[in-house]
Nucleic acid binder design. Structure first.
Lengths: 117, 117
DNA sequence: CGACTCGTACGATAGGCATCGTAGTACGGG
DNA sequence: CCCGTACTACGATGCCTATCGTACGAGTCG
């Protein structure tokens, strides 16, 4: 097959209607999670958890991805041993038009401002 | 005097450069605080703390206003016995162009969607 | 099968935070 | 000067959460 077949293990996601702005903001208020979302947005594709080199243990990484999934920011699916993560851009844009782009822009501006680069 | 004179009591505010996106998002991830900001934006002027009729005690209200001030979302100044609260729209727009408006729009859409009204 | 990789589950811990109640301070008006 | 109003300060409480370590499960490859 071209696609490695999705594992039977499935993960609970909120429906679009269940996504709450407060939850999204809370999820993004953590620097680690904001960084994850920025990388996902920059790549514009799904990324495995192990792609991210975060300064925390794997346990903590799992925790952050779960928060992002349960708040509706990302969707996750197993593909073999890898767990692929993708931004739920369509759902977020549908609920909160333009918000995601402004948030990403704001994060990028701040990174430039603080990083000095 | 035309203006009731600002009290000598002054409150610590972050400078524009000290405002952090994560802090702003965290401040707005609380329903109570998001509501306060929505009202401030709707009025477009300063409001006293006592103007807000929140379903919590005054102690808790004080706490929420402090979080909003320390994150840089609002500015506070004493005027007589009243403490006036104003959105730091210029600072936020300067740092994160368009973000505040999108957030307010997102909050309004969600209120319509959930409130049914 | 066996080993290896990826990610999870669970328990522990430490800190943060939303909330309350009570007691207290600052200011303005009678 | 005294009182009422507006807000604060402080302590307590219970919940949430970011973090870790270790042990485990699921899948792939030799």
């Amino acid at each position: 097959m071209t696609s490695p077949a999705v594992s039977s293990r499935d993960l609970p996601h909120p429906t679009r209607e269940e996504i709450r702005l407060e939850g999204v903001l809370h999820a993004l208020s953590d620097p680690m999670r904001l960084q994850i979302v920025r990388e996902l947005a920059a790549v514009g594709d799904e990324l495995s958890c192990s792609h991210f080199d975060l300064p925390v243990t794997k346990s903590t990484t799992t925790h952050h991805f779960r928060v992002l999934r349960e708040s509706g920011v990302i969707q996750q699916v197993y593909r073999g041993t890898a767990k692929m993560n993708g931004l739920r851009k369509d759902d977020l844009d549908g609920l909160f038009p333009g918000l995601l782009d402004r948030l990403l822009d704001a994060a990028a501006r701040q990174a430039v401002r603080l990083g000095g680069a």
